[in-house]
Each structure stands twice: as structure tokens, then as C-alpha cells.
Design a protein around this nucleic acid. Structure first.
Length: 441
RNA sequence: GGAGAGGUGGCAGAGUGGUCGAAUGCGUCGGUCUCGAAAACCGAUAUGGGUGCAAGCCCAUCGAGGGUUCGAAUCCCUCCCUCUCCGCCA
């Protein structure tokens, strides 16, 4: 029978957890995750190992009997073999049934254990412990009262939220006029920046199978509709993706790379769909939090010794992209308690948004995570090298180059003029085809 | 969507009930030869797990899942995918 926990399905290796139980438990505590699954994983894994060994011994006996069958001369001898073998077969079936249960128990506890945490990541239980590790630019001071992006969109005829609601519901929108051009310009700018840095441009599907979503660390089958973030397509095993991280990561599912082909760097374009469950009532106006947006995502597969450096590289590209846009932003090093399950370390870029809050606030525009082998384990993405026998799991990293709606919010609010017009950032002008979005009369 | 064919190791491609984890070719790696290289020749070369100091041995895997059988790559069922032809379509 096929084991549920095949190579590559656990998130953290059960053997790793057993050997590092103290560290894993401490990490769970730091991350606000319950620690009891650690004990259970160890117990269930012990039981699993016992059963696997028993099964393997029993199967060896049965195989041996089968081999003797063709040498059996008399019908009686054959009958005797047949009987013994059938008994062993039933024994194996019993072991398999137990294994199935134990593996189910093991897996359901294993998925509750988050990735380990980078030693340099800030310690803390919630977002208040996140630290600012870099600052670029100063929030702009206005000598007039700046509008928020919703007001700007209205005044300049850049978006139609009412039509979005009519056609698809709350938190959908139509981009119009220069906003539509700006989105295309942002896409071009971000992709070209990443391509110049050696990233392979990719346009991915906007849908993916449940198993791929789960491999990346999403939970499309979350039974709780108040926390499920993912749209599913009725009567299929497909979901609308929440980010191209899902499709880019899934692209090499079940592959084994030769070390010489790593690292692989991709920059992907996709639409992203999020139910925003649990965020009801938050950011209900405008483009900041929407159910669908266009995003350019960077993704890398690499050997473990390169993942820290590539994480810094992706962060550097994100900084470069936002510096190029002339926006003020800072970089957050996310604390342990605020990290999602798959991330080992995560940086967020937050850009200054003058229309946010009472007098402007920083708002998240990009995010980059080093997921080490958490995703590759679940997706079965490995590499081989002359330096060791067998295969090892690659590390995966992801980072936003541009999330169009968030970038649009920051650009519109920061580049607005006293006369109601909005200047187009210089790097985008080639694609927008103009310098200014003029106030409508 | 309809009809047909097919999914086997890094690739190509044999294999229709046990001697098959799997011929052969290509590729790759190691060696011989050579001043060096090519060619030629010799050898090695799937993955995961278990066990052992090790050589090795054992279990599982031939698209996925289930079934028949003492025994399945091989027979049966379901699903997925690919190819060819037809239809439809941006």
C-alpha cells in the first residue's frame, strides 16, 4: 500500500522534530503556535516506525513464500503455501489499516507545526514586536490637505467601485483611464527590473489544484469560512490562486534538480484572489484591500546555503523597485509570532500612504519570505549533488515585486498636487505615455 | 465535447502473470589507452524508507487510487494526464 507520508509530504520532517524536540517546542512557543503537536508527532511517529518495520518484515516473509510457489511439486504443498501466504496477507492488511490511522494522526499534528525561525528574526508574539530595519525617503509634507486614493480615483475618473460591486460584489473594482495604464506600466516596470536582475519572466495560471495550494502552505480546505482565504471552483479540485507564489512554487512539484541548475529565479505575473475572510469591515473602501488584484511575484529555488543571500537579494530588488517609484518606505523584519507557518524569515516593505488613517500611515506593499524547505518538502522538490548521496530538499523564497493595487494607492496619494492632478512617476512614463494625470474640469 | 492510441529509469524505448526495479540505445560519471583530447574499450548509473562498521540485505514505488491472485509493470474497475483525428472557440 502507498503510505500517506511519502517522501516530501511532511512540513517539518518527523525525524527532525524528534531529534530537535526542545528547539521545535521553543519555536512553536515563540510563534504563538501550540506546543502539544510536538509531543504527539513524536508519539505517532514512533508508532508509525514500529508499524512500518513490522510491515516490511511481514511482507518479506510473504514474498519469500510466493517465490517458493513455483518450486512446489505437489498440490498439497501448493495448498500449504497458499494458506500461509494468505494468512500473512491478512496480517499485512491489518497493519496497513493501523498505519493509515497513525499516519493520518501524525499528519494532522505535523501540519500544525510551523517552520523554524531565522535566529536573527525579532522575538515577539505579535506585530508590535516587528522591527524597522531600513528606511528610505521621508514621508511627504503637504501644504494642502491631501486626498485619499478613493477621492482621487473619483475626482480623476480612475476607478469605478460601484460598477465593481454591481458586477462582482464588494471589494471588486474597475480600473479606468490612467489607472488602467498605470497598472500595465507597473507590471512592465516590475518585470523588467527583475528580468534585468536575471529572473526568468513567467505568466502563470490563475487557478491551481488544491494539493498545490496545500504544498505552498495555504489551507483551501479550511473548514472555517471565517478564516479560509481561498476561493474554490465548484465541482473541481481547483482554486483561484491568492498569489503567483502558489503557481511558481508548484511549477517544479515532484522534480529533482541537479545542483548545477540551481538557483532558479522566476518573476511571475498573475491575478490574485482573496476572500479576505476575517477582514470584514476593514479597509472596505478603495483599492487597499480587494478580492482581486494583479501582482508580479519573484520566486526562487535554491540550495540551502544560498537561501539567506537570495532572500536579501529579493529584498534588495523590492527596495530598488520602490526607490525607483520615488516612494517613502521602510522595511520591517517580522517577528517570530507574526510569521505565517511556512516562513523562516519575512521582510515587509511598507510605503507611506498619506491618505491612510488620520494623517497618513505606512501600509504594506510587498513581502518577501524565506520558506527554507517547508514548501519543498510538501511539494517534493529536491536536488542532487556530487557532495552527498541521495537527494535533499531545495529552499524556496518568494517576494512581491509589485502588487498593483497597493502600489497604485501609494502612487496616487503621494504624487497628488494641490490642483488635484497626479504626477506620474518618471519610471512609469514610458508605458503610461504621459507625465501627469490632469484634474478633470 | 466525440472517436482512437498511449502513460515504464535523466531521455528514447522493450517488456502481457513468477527468473523484472525492469532488456537495449543515448546521456552522465569513473577507468584503460593518449603528451593531451577525440574515438574505441571496460565498469558504474532510479527514488524513498528500514537494517548493518561496511560490503550488502530487506520493504515500497513502472501516471494515481482500488480490485483479482500465493504472486501484478503485465489482468479488471475508477480517476488523472498526454498524443492523433473530428467538432467548437479567443
Amino acid at each position: 500500500m502507498r503510505l500517506l507520508i511519502t517522501p516530501g509530504s511532511p512540513m517539518l520532517d518527523a525525524a527532525f522534530i524528534r531529534e530537535n524536540a526542545e528547539a521545535v517546542r521553543a519555536n512553536c512557543a515563540n510563534r504563538n503556535a501550540p506546543t502539544f503537536p510536538v509531543e504527539r508527532v513524536i508519539a505517532f511517529d514512533d508508532e508509525r516506525r514500529r508499524l512500518v518495520q513490522l510491515r516490511s518484515e511481514t511482507a518479506a516473509k510473504q514474498n519469500q513464500l510466493s517465490k517458493g510457489f513455483k518450486d512446489a511439486k505437489t498440490p498439497d504443498a501448493k495448498e500449504a503455501l497458499r494458506k500461509q501466504s494468505t494468512e500473512l496477507k491478512e496480517e499485512i492488511a491489518g497493519i496497513d489499516a493501523q498505519l493509515k490511522i497513525v499516519e493520518g494522526d501524525l499528519l494532522s499534528n505535523l501540519i500544525m507545526i510551523p517552520n523554524m525561525t531565522h535566529p536573527a528574526a525579532p522575538v515577539g508574539t505579535d506585530a508590535t514586536a516587528n522591527t524597522v530595519v531600513a528606511k528610505f525617503g521621508e514621508p511627504r509634507r503637504f501644504d494642502f490637505k491631501p486626498k485619499d486614493h478613493v477621492a482621487l480615483c473619483e475626482a480623476l475618473d480612475l476607478a469605478d467601485f460601484e460598477a465593481g460591486t454591481k458586477v462582482a460584489g464588494q471589494k471588486f473594482y474597475f480600473l479606468k483611464n490612467e489607472a488602467a495604464l498605470l497598472e500595465i506600466a507597473l507590471v512592465q516596470y516590475a518585470i523588467h527590473t527583475a528580468v534585468k536582475a536575471g529572473y526568468t519572466p513567467i505568466i502563470t495560471p490563475d487557478l491551481a489544484r488544491v494539493e498545490v495550494l496545500e504544498g505552498i502552505g495555504f489551507m483551501p480546505r479550511d473548514p472555517n469560512p471565517n478564516t479560509r482565504q481561498i476561493y474554490t471552483v465548484a465541482d473541481t479540485d481547483l482554486c483561484l490562486i491568492a498569489t503567483a507564489e502558489i503557481t511558481l512554487g508548484g511549477m517544479h512539484k515532484d522534480q529533482i534538480f541537479d545542483e548545477s541548475h540551481l538557483p532558479k529565479r522566476y518573476v511571475g505575473l498573475s491575478h490574485c484572489f482573496r476572500t479576505e475572510a476575517g477582514a470584514a469591515g476593514r479597509d472596505t473602501r478603495g483599492l487597499y484591500r480587494v478580492h482581486q488584484f494583479t501582482k508580479i511575484e519573484m520566486f526562487a529555488f535554491c540550495t540551502p546555503d544560498h537561501s539567506d543571500a537570495i532572500h536579501e537579494e529579493i529584498r534588495g530588488l523590492e527596495e530598488q523597485i520602490f526607490q525607483g517609484l520615488g516612494l517613502a518606505f521602510h522595511v520591517i523584519d517580522t517577528c517570530a509570532g507574526d510569521l505565517g507557518g511556512p516562513a523562516y524569515r519575512k521582510y515587509d516593505l511598507e510605503a507611506w500612504m498619506p491618505g491612510r488613517g488620520a494623517a497618513g500611515e505606512y501600509g504594506e506593499v510587498t513581502s518577501t519570505s524565506n520558506c527554507t524547505d517547508y514548501q519543498s518538502r510538501r511539494l517534493g522538490i529536491r536536488y542532487k549533488s556530487k557532495a552527498f548521496k541521495g537527494t535533499r530538499f531545495v529552499h524556496t523564497l518568494n517576494g512581491t515585486a509589485i502588487a498593483c493595487t497597493r502600489a497604485l494607492v501609494a502612487i496616487l496619494e503621494n504624487y497628488q498636487q494641490a490642483d488635484g492632478s497626479v504626477i506620474i512617476p518618471e519610471v512609469l512614463r514610458p508605458w503610461v505615455g504621459k507625465d501627469v494625470i490632469s484634474a478633470k474640469t
